[in-house]
Design a binder for these strands. Structure first.
Lengths: 191, 191
DNA sequence: CGCCTTTCTGGACCGGAGGTCCACTTAGAT
DNA sequence: ATCTAAGTGGACCTCCGGTCCAGAAAGGCG
């Protein structure tokens, strides 16, 4: 057995149908509609299949977020400045936050559906983001507790917050980005 | 009927027993143990009574938070500076955030139990805090979108974040306060 | 081509959550 | 003492995440 046995082709097809159905569900009926049973039904498979593919609810939602997060990770790790390496850390941090707001705004319903109640720990997809922020913060000022700052920043622009701003308060994306820039100005502007 | 009829004395007693039992439950078995049934049993009353007193789960948790939030509200609205009126807005904001971190840290389990999943809107108890932050931000710089900034700041130091830092990362309270100060430095220090 | 192992599939089933309902009880004003 | 509005308890409902396992089928191999 070289490596591990490949996923059977029908299984792979079902994985795709499930992800697709989940996306459709959220888009059409909101984050609250993303129940495992609903996804199964919408995908035309049994509930057991969904669990078999994704383990649990979080596994499914993480897979959903992964799809668009992966390209973002590439962008800030290997892409062109100011998001990618090459620019000063302060500029990269600002670009990162602004870009993340845009990204989450584009996938708000999905990101909201992936939010896990009373999370004792950060959802896996957000781990790399936190690490990246921490690295930048450390580069900006090594005296800061970079992990704490990263946690604060990531939470400040978390999906529920963005959603509240956008829809309960009617704020547009640019205003959110301006606000975020103002919040970070203490880190990004050296005095 | 002057005003509205007073709450019957046995009902008031039960309200107290329920709140007390809830606090005990959370303290002893963690935020996850706060189920309506468990509270009812621990208080020695029926489930219906708990719902009758508090409406729903959120009503109960909000009442729990209210107990310690009320004194905090007094402190930043009418108390002595730098938390209360009298000090410059920048100082008041910093004092507010530092103090709120202390407060939440002292009641983390409770605050965590009160966290509502996928919150479309801010939990009622946090409303006044958000307004206060917004006022201060506006006083610091009228050009900022104060409501957005308030939302960001409040979310940055939300109970789940504080909990993660304290227990998953082993950070102490002072470090959190220092971090928060650093995050706000762009607002609090004029350049 | 047919076999056999391994994986996959579907949906019945379970436990536990929040919330409703309503017949019964009881405080407390008159 | 009576009466009524408020309060009470717990059976009951719905919905959800998650488990389980008997049956189906993929696909490597002779």
């Amino acid at each position: 057995m070289a490596g591990q046995r490949r996923e059977r082709s029908d299984a792979a097809a079902n994985r795709e149908r499930i992800l697709c159905a989940a996306r459709r569900l959220v888009a059409e009926h909101g984050p609250g509609a993303l129940t495992m049973q609903a996804v199964a039904t919408a995908a035309g498979v049994g509930k057991g299949t969904v669990f078999h593919r994704f383990g649990d609810r979080q596994g499914l939602t993480q897979a959903l977020l992964d799809e668009y997060m992966r390209t973002f990770q590439d962008a800030f790790l290997h892409g062109p400045p100011p998001l990618g390496p090459g620019a000063p850390a302060a500029e990269r941090l600002e670009a990162f936050v602004v870009e993340l707001i845009t990204l989450q705004d584009d996938h708000l319903a999905l990101a909201l559906a992936a939010e896990v109640p009373m999370s004792a720990s950060l959802a896996p997809v957000y781990g790399p983001l936190a690490i990246h922020i921490a690295d930048l913060v450390h580069e900006i000022d090594p005296d800061l507790h970079e992990t704490v700052l990263a946690g604060f920043i990531l939470s400040a622009i978390s999906p529920p917050v963005l959603h509240r701003m956008r829809y309960a308060l009617g704020v547009d994306t640019e205003t959110l980005q301006t606000g975020a820039r103002a919040l970070l100005s203490g880190l990004t502007r050296k005095c």
